[in-house]
Amino acid sequence: MTTLAGRLVRYRWWLVVIIGITAFTLFTGDFRLDPTTAILAATLRHSTPLVLGAMCGILSERSGVVNIGIEGQMLMSAFAGFMVASGSQSLLMGVAAGITVGALMGAALAGLSVTLKGDQIIAGTVLNIAAIGLTSFFFTQGRSLPGKTPIIRLGPLADLPVIGKVFFINPPITYVSLLLVVALWYALFRTTWGLHTRAVGEHPSAAETVGISVVRMRYLNLILGGAIAGLAGAYLSLEAVGSFERGMTNGKGFVALAVMIFGRWNPVGAWGAALLFGYTNAIQTQFQFRGWFTDHPQFVGMLPFIVTIIVLAGFVGRARPPASLGQPYDRE
């Protein structure tokens, strides 16, 4: 009994937050089942690119490389996915192209920051600016996709009340992102590869003395992270919007970084954080639907960004990044 009471006291603020959000959701959902379910489903959809982007950041930063180029990686992949899918009229080819280009962008970041030992934040900025320039230069109007990635009903699970509609009636990349959260958590904290990755991020020279190649691990993680950011890009153009627009990432790559920090560099934590951010997006739509704040849509529009700032200012002090983050590794 005391442990339960102790836990209640320890997590009291989380309880307040959870109860508050639940009450608010029911309120905006007009206390009816369908709109409330719709808010939850939209939350999951909006969180997908964020959790994927955050996992890209986790892989990079756990191995010791700051990645602020997630935005650029996502934008390039969204573009490549769209161009290939519209050219080949195959969505699968498009997703594959998105992942490939994301991985290449990851390799580019690795080249700039690990091999050439450039400043990691500037290297990421190079990726971002290059992505804006290249996608605008090569984008031509008038291409179209053979539809969006289809929604898949997962058999009887889809018939469950509320949960079925939220979790088991989704398009493919959303399912993949959920699986990746679990897989990446397992890989990072329960496998040798994960141990090596974290060792390289915490204390590279110690890792090197026991025979782990710092350069190899960083390349591997940045390329893998890039591929995951590529999936996020493909999600945007092929699953969410069904088209490409200039600058369509619209800051999601940066919000993903905040999600990563809020989730304390842990895939499961990041998923929870991504849901919170997805939620701020989802209630925007619901606000519009209910006709709230329609005269002042700008205030609703800035909500996710303000939440990001508050979260960063409130939580970053308590979250500890990998120790050797941001420093190029020089083998003495």
């Binding site: 940066f254 960004f305 700032i309 960063l312 200012a313 002090g317």
Partner: peptide, 27 residues
């Protein structure tokens, strides 16, 4: 101020504030 008092990295906060500024200015 956020960096000095709370340790929030300026790269993220300045970008977020760009979006907030765009909305505020539009309003």
């Amino acid at each position: 101020i956020l960096k000095a008092t709370r340790g929030a990295h300026e790269v993220i906060t300045t970008i977020m504030l760009n979006f907030v500024a765009a909305n505020m200015a539009e309003w």
